[in-house]
Design a protein around this nucleic acid. Structure first.
Lengths: 185, 185
DNA sequence: CCTTACATGTAACAAGTTACATGATTAG
DNA sequence: CTAATCATGTAACTTGTTACATGTAAGG
């Protein structure tokens, strides 16, 4: 569904090979969307078949040959049409709440261990985001001038990641205390 | 993956038919996990085949006959094993950021329309959550006493929904202002 | 020698969605 | 007459994951 447009969105900025796209997903873009290389190659071939992408074989002497994809006019209009289409309704997935539902069937420690893991995870994510911001986005990129470049979008994805992670961390702490306080008294 | 355990988690509280489970997903449980009836029936049959559930035919005079499922001992231990297993890593999906990536290829208004829709959506969700809390969870259910019942878990899912929605709303407003401010100057 | 980076793919499977089907009863 | 509620299902399809495959070149 959306992966296709994620790939198109990257190719708007510059032509790329599947491998380069996959590396971007592994790194920065992975902060707000992720995909395996198998799926990326599949989408690239499909979109090339529709004429949304043009591809050029790129022979290399030392490394394996690559296939570089560039977005076409029809790719650009498909992308614009997608942006203009309302996103599907928000569908929450909160697996930790699923574990709370199972609470009567499990030892309380098992549940608390998951809370601890989630807290450690979210703290690690917070630290990672802050580290990236400090390294690459201090001062923040100017969004005032001209169209958004990839760098600016990645900055916004970090602010979003921070906001979501902070909210999750606070909820985890509050809820854990509620549950543990309950067990204690 | 997790739907299976969502269903098991519901059946811990009381035996249910597929139809009843589907209605719960449509309503309250849908705040943190959702599923169509087709998938629910499929999982129920599968888990019954594994001996995780026992099922009883429930004939009705006036309505269609139903099949009521109850969790078994082996279902309970499968559920406990799942709770004890760390959840898979967090995989963010932020489709709005995907649209920002596509920005150079689309008219700015198209993007802003999506921001407006997202804002309207999240405000509606906030209002709905607050309404449910005011109606059914004032005062909040005591989490101090005994094991969590379904009611208490639904309350916690609402607090989580509120925290996530607030964070999203704030980010949307802040980011929209950054972008619009940029276009204006 | 072993691992990592480069670069692309096939095949099988798991999870989730959409469309379609059936058939009775009750409410408007 | 029409629609909604109850109750369960099949079939086709899309999306995403896991496992496996191939082959070169550079670095330790």
């Amino acid at each position: 569904m959306s992966l296709r447009y994620a790939v198109l969105g990257l190719l708007v900025h510059e032509p790329m090979t599947g491998y380069e796209i996959a590396r971007l997903f592994d790194a920065s873009v992975g902060h707000f969307w992720s995909a395996r290389h198998q799926q990326i190659y599949r989408e690239l071939r499909e979109m090339a078949g529709w004429g949304w992408l043009g591809d050029t074989a790129e022979p290399h002497a030392d490394r394996p040959d690559a296939r570089r994809y560039a977005i076409t006019e029809s790719g650009l209009s498909a992308l614009a049409a997608w942006v203009d289409t309302p996103l599907p309704p928000h569908r929450p997935r909160e697996p930790v709440l699923l574990k709370l539902l199972a609470a009567p069937a499990v030892p309380p420690d098992s549940l608390m261990a998951e809370f601890d893991r989630q807290l450690a995870d979210v703290e690690a994510r917070l630290a990672a985001y802050r580290d990236i911001v400090a390294r690459h986005y201090d001062p923040p990129p100017p969004l005032a001038t001209g169209p958004l470049n990839r760098h600016a979008v990645l900055y916004l994805s970090l602010t979003r990641g921070l906001s979501a992670a902070l909210a999750y961390r606070d909820w985890l702490i509050e809820t854990r205390d509620l549950l543990v306080g309950g067990a204690a008294t």
